[in-house]
């Protein structure tokens, strides 16, 4: 399922240097328990439901080709199991009680939005970031966008979890000025438990990518009870320290956002089990990386 984008964010200031536009690709092959963009996970469009906004106009019932919407005891009921994310109901739901996450775009359409902020990229040293989801899963679409960005001289960044074949990195890297590379947990078992996949390929790819030919910002989401321990941070620092091209290590604090999104998708909110994040700990972790000779930024 290519060309599927679920959001385009202008004035993005946390995904690489300067003022940027971030294009969010839909579909991810990790299942991080702390994901705050759950609508990004599925590689297909998905319906998000916000019942409190419903004005009971009944249009969704009329247009749904799969009879997902029925009235039960006078209340509107939605049968997600029948829904294929066609978006017909969202199209007529002006109250925005129904919204569809993800739609197909062509590259020129995206570039039109990207080009709106050219002045701001230029002055601030910003550009475009492709994020997700996992943009590398739609690498051909990503390639075409990167090419278009380069045609107009834009700084490009790709935000990736790294869990794809390295060939894909080889394909895109000539067009990428900066990789934002997620490093979640060093312990493979813990990684599997909380992300659903092994970290072996991810770490292997990172080592190969960090050969000095690409600039890389490492992004570590600090998740209480998962990776917020010295052992994990030291191991991460040990991994990163000898690598070339690591320009920055960013420690990203876990935050309680996304609960409403999970609810809108009919998904369990898995994050409750994590405790609060300690700022002191994050500062201590920053020291670990700094002592390993790495530039670090704790958000």
């Amino acid at each position: 399922m290519d060309n599927l984008i679920f959001d385009i964010q202008q004035f993005s200031v946390h995904d690489g240097p300067g003022i940027r536009t971030t294009v969010f690709f839909k579909g991810c092959n990790l299942r991080c328990a702390w994901c705050h963009n759950p609508e990004s996970i599925s590689p297909d469009p998905v319906l998000q439901l916000y019942p409190h906004k419903c004005i009971h106009c009944g249009k969704c019932i009329e247009v749904c080709p799969h009879n997902c919407n029925i009235i039960v005891d006078g209340e509107l009921s939605y049968r997600r199991e029948l829904c294929d994310g066609c978006g017909e109901c969202a199209r007529v739901c002006y109250a925005q009680s129904r919204q569809i996450a993800g739609r197909r775009w062509d590259a020129d359409e995206i570039m039109k939005i990207v080009e709106r902020d050219l002045h701001f990229y230029k002055s601030s040293g910003g550009g475009v970031t492709f994020s997700g989801g996992e943009p590398m899963l739609q690498h051909e679409f990503l390639l075409s966008l990167l090419e278009k960005c380069k045609e107009i001289g834009l700084h490009t960044a790709v935000d990736t979890a790294g869990n794809v074949l390295f060939e894909r990195f080889e394909q895109v890297r000539p067009l990428v000025d900066l990789f934002l590379y997620d490093l979640k947990v060093m312990d493979d078992e813990v990684h599997k438990r909380f992300t659903g996949v092994s970290n072996r390929l991810i770490i292997e790819n990172l080592k190969r990518l960090a050969d000095g030919r690409s600039d890389i910002y490492i992004r570590i989401p600090v998740i209480p009870g998962v990776n917020d321990n010295m052992d994990n941070m030291r191991k991460s620092a040990d991994l990163l320290s000898p690598l070339s091209g690591i320009k920055l290590v960013e420690l990203l604090p876990f935050h309680f956002l996304g609960e409403a999104k999970y609810k809108s998708l009919g998904m369990e909110y898995p994050i409750r089990e994590f405790g609060p994040l300690s700022k002191v700990k994050t500062a201590q972790f920053a020291v670990v990386f700094s002592e390993a000779g790495l530039k670090v930024k704790a958000h």
């Binding site: 946390h14 003022i19 701001f120």
Partner: peptide
């Protein structure tokens, strides 16, 4: 929050300068 971020003030300065000096 924008101002509290490292580099946030510089980014906002660029935003202001672009708005006035370029646009």
């Amino acid at each position: 929050k924008l101002g509290a971020d490292e580099g946030g003030i510089e980014i906002f300065m660029e935003f202001i300068k672009t708005y006035f000096n370029t646009m």
